[in-house]
Design a protein around this nucleic acid. Structure first.
Lengths: 217, 217, 217, 217
DNA sequence: TATGAATGAGCCTTCATTCAT
DNA sequence: TATGAATGAAGGCTCATTCAT
């Protein structure tokens, strides 16, 4: 009696590969629908895999989303760090960082920006988000701190933090702007952001603050 | 002894009053839980009224949310417009605008910022959001344009738009920062934002851009 | 100080009038939507009256529907009885009855046929329906019985009842057919029904039955 | 003593089986309560299964109802077609068809007739109904047309359609009559219907119409 | 490993009906 | 008489999650 082991086409892939497939699918679906509107069914189907597998590999829906966030966030960070380089003047560093950031966002229009936006709206992800943001603020803060050190000046930590937040916020806003406009050019957007950020930040770093003279209360 | 016929507390209120109660409750609950996690039951209960009334007066959950967005957004706009004043130098205008903005956000820590964040994450609200944002961008854009005109200079529309977006984004980010920190001081936050924005924007307005000399491609 | 008794346009109508308005509205809405899909709100609104009035005058939704059924059914009966006349040969009577029936249905395409159809589908109306149908079966049965008597023949009661049911059923079916076809001509439909019914019934009345010779079991 | 591992009764059945169970339950409940009064909860419970399974397999309440209609309608048609046979004289065909029809209705007193009645009352089922009815009219129309052809005579399509409708209506009415009288005999009902239909139709087919001489307009 | 079968729980929405004025 | 305000109750539908095979 003949053996009937029809080779199951493309099955039994190693775990690591399967996980990436799932994450790809999850990122797609979460971006397309938003966290809540995304259903585990759709994700599993989009991944070409059965639901229990998703649970077995990546855990609950929240954990799955966090996994997406992590992977995409890490990729973004890597892109930025790789773009920034080392031992360059701070403005060049910032410029390269921004260009990398907008380049990445522009290239993954369905990924990072949307996930991030989602995460900010769902409280369960406060933790994961805080982590991400700290990483970003740290990267930017470090740059700024180096620049200040180079100038021999100092700045209070909280001011630094706020400035970093403002920068990140402005960048996020433009990232949204960019994500909504398929024809827009990431590099030009980066330039505009740089102008906005640096000429301002630059002056600040030189010690000039506003207002020139004290103002209302 | 006179009969004190204080109407039985909390019954048969006129529509206008009930609607405000409901909106108050809705804003509270949407902020506390997020759009999806908020249940109409909880909103109704928090408003001290039965669910069908909510549907009768404010409609669907989505419509209710949009109503919240509108009310809070309008209040914010009014606060800003009232704060900005007229016939003042542009930096003074911007400063007052920012102070009004952060003052409002600080005073309604559970209101605007959170709703706005929610709206950005749920696709069904794209329309309502676009409207809001256009209003904001317009307010800011107008200020900037006036400032430019006062300087006798010009700027391309798109640059203006991008700059306004950056400003709005930075402000939103700091609003988040503020909303998450009950102890932070709105006025100080406004000052920091002003420093970030104006010294930068101010230089731009004077025609100085970055980079000083052309850079990489 | 001027008297402000703006004459309330068309208010305070006598009860009887109001009731007719409500029934008109109810018939319209029940026909348009079906019993369940019709809402008391819509009926009240269509009648230009507030809901509590409807309850005060015509009672619950079921009672209201039954009231509609009665009024329309009575009108139909009256039309038929008026059409049939007296002291005519049975075929002429049947013909006139059918013509009146289809004429009425054709003229009230949104009324009787639809209500009747509705009533047949909702168990709570079994009683009301039985009454109506009995009235119809009686009218027809009487005609047939007279015809038989004129022929000096007899027929068992149950056979008579079944025949009447068949007649009523066929007529109802054609009434539906007519109600769904706004362009169809009531009179032609009546003629067709008459042909179907009479040439058959006529033969039966003459004592000819099927099969001519006994058939299968 | 052998272990009797009868699989734990009623668990993990294959889809096809469960679907039939659900349809059985649905037909029962829809017939018992009517479409609107039937609740998905009751259907699920009656089927001994949880509600989500019903939705997973058969879809919406409307879709479920249509599925019932289809299954029962198809069964009826098959019964009729099987009953009618081929190459028989038209009266014999009609007789067998009617007997099959009433036999089926009598045997499934809670099934077809009630569903059909329901469908006629709810507008959303217009489409499904039209389909069913066309199938029926076609079956009957074909028989009649063959009979006519055999007689070498012709008849306009619309007349044929109307006659078929009248037949179907009369049959439906008697089916109702039968469904409401548990003691009545399907075969006798079929005979009565046959008498009503054939002796009439028979005359028509012979070219005799009513009135013998032209009548009122 | 991999999956079809199965469900508890919950949410949005609607409606008939009644108070209090 | 007439109505705006108010609600208890219920029903359709969906989803994340887990067994049993």
């Amino acid at each position: 009696m003949a053996r009937v082991t029809t080779s199951p086409t493309f099955k039994r892939l190693p775990r690591a590969v399967r996980e990436q497939q799932m994450l790809d699918a999850a990122v797609r679906v979460f971006s397309r629908r938003g966290f809540h509107a995304a259903s585990m069914d759709e994700i599993a189907e989009d991944a070409g895999i059965s639901k229990p597998m998703v649970y077995a590999y990546l855990g609950t829906k929240e954990e799955l989303f966090i996994a997406c966030l992590h992977r995409e966030g890490t990729r973004l960070m890597e892109a930025i760090v790789a773009g920034v380089g080392t031992d360059l003047p701070p403005d060049e560093q910032l410029w390269r960082g921004l260009r990398a950031f907008f380049g990445f966002v522009g290239a993954h229009r369905d990924g990072w920006a949307v996930l991030y936006r989602q995460a900010r709206a769902q409280q369960p992800f406060a933790g994961a988000l805080a982590t991400m943001r700290e990483r970003m603020v740290e990267v930017i803060g470090t740059m700024l701190a180096q620049a200040l050190a180079a100038e021999g000046r100092e700045i209070r930590d909280m001011d630094l933090e706020v400035m970093a937040y403002a920068l990140v916020g402005a960048s996020e806003s433009l990232a949204d702007w960019l994500a909504d406009r398929p024809d827009a050019d990431p590099d030009k957007t980066a330039t505009r952001m740089m102008n906005f950020a640096w000429v301002g930040a630059g002056q600040l770093l030189h010690g000039e603050t506003w207002p020139p003279a004290p103002l209302s209360p």
